[in-house]
Amino acid sequence: MKSQITGMLEGREIYVTQPAINPRDMRRIILDQSKRANVGHIGPCLCVVEILSALYSSVLRANSPDDPDRDRFILSKGHAGLALYAALSLKGWLPEGALDSFCGDNTLLGVHPEAALRGVDFTTGSLGQGLCIGAGAALAARMQHSTRRVFCLISDAECNEGSVWEAAMFAAHHQLSNLHVIVDCNGQQALGLTRDVLNISNLAERWRAFGWRTEELDGHSVSALAQSLSHASSSEAPHIVIAHTVFGKGVSYMQAGIPVTQTHLPAHPVNWHYLPMSDHEYGLAMAELEHAD
């Protein structure tokens, strides 16, 4: 299914009412595969579904994952690797059955994405490295007089890393307007809420101060994301979208940090950063997904 073009703005197409890569299908894959592999990192995958749906449905210009002049995408928050696999699978870029090797033996589909897997542009997993690579990829495109763009998805907690700001400075100084960053702003990190660990609440102001064209929007609106990321600005500044997301989006007990059947654990916002689902929890999640609007 093709994305539906809904209009034109400054010569560029504006998308999307029915994204080709449906968020519900992505969530189903994330829940199925997390359950099958009995692994966690479900919450951070669920909250970037719409971002990846927008990117892989309509934003990324790539005829194939092997086209050297394709747009590049870096999932700098590599712990959402399963969400990327879901998008790649629905895009038709993963071989049939590849998803079932997620977290298997000798697999290319580990928790964090590896560039050895066709469709993954860069290996990630260590926070703070993706944007530096992205800045290099954007600079390379400009030096090669290519119109390809670079998209990099980072997390809000990733902004704890000093290297993010090294890259931020560099990209702004060199006016890498072909570099687009999306911050998955879910307010959580591994051991607590971002505001409690290292407060970065005024994230947009910080990026603006670094010289970036900064937008804030609903990270679960595929159309808003697609429009923002596809829009060709006349600005010479690199572009960042602070995408406000809900951790564990689509599964209410995950959003609330409640371990439904794992009763030895207290409710805590970050529980579903780590926990795998019990059978009952999986059933609840799938039921909620199927009944969602």
């Binding site: 050297p68 590049r72 530096c132 800045a135 290099g136 990829a137 954007a138 600079l139 390379a140 090294e166």
Partner: peptide, 15 residues
Amino acid sequence: QNMIGLATGMAEAGF
């Protein structure tokens, strides 16, 4: 750190 990241992104593009 950024310099090595830049170099990585540039090398992937053929530099």
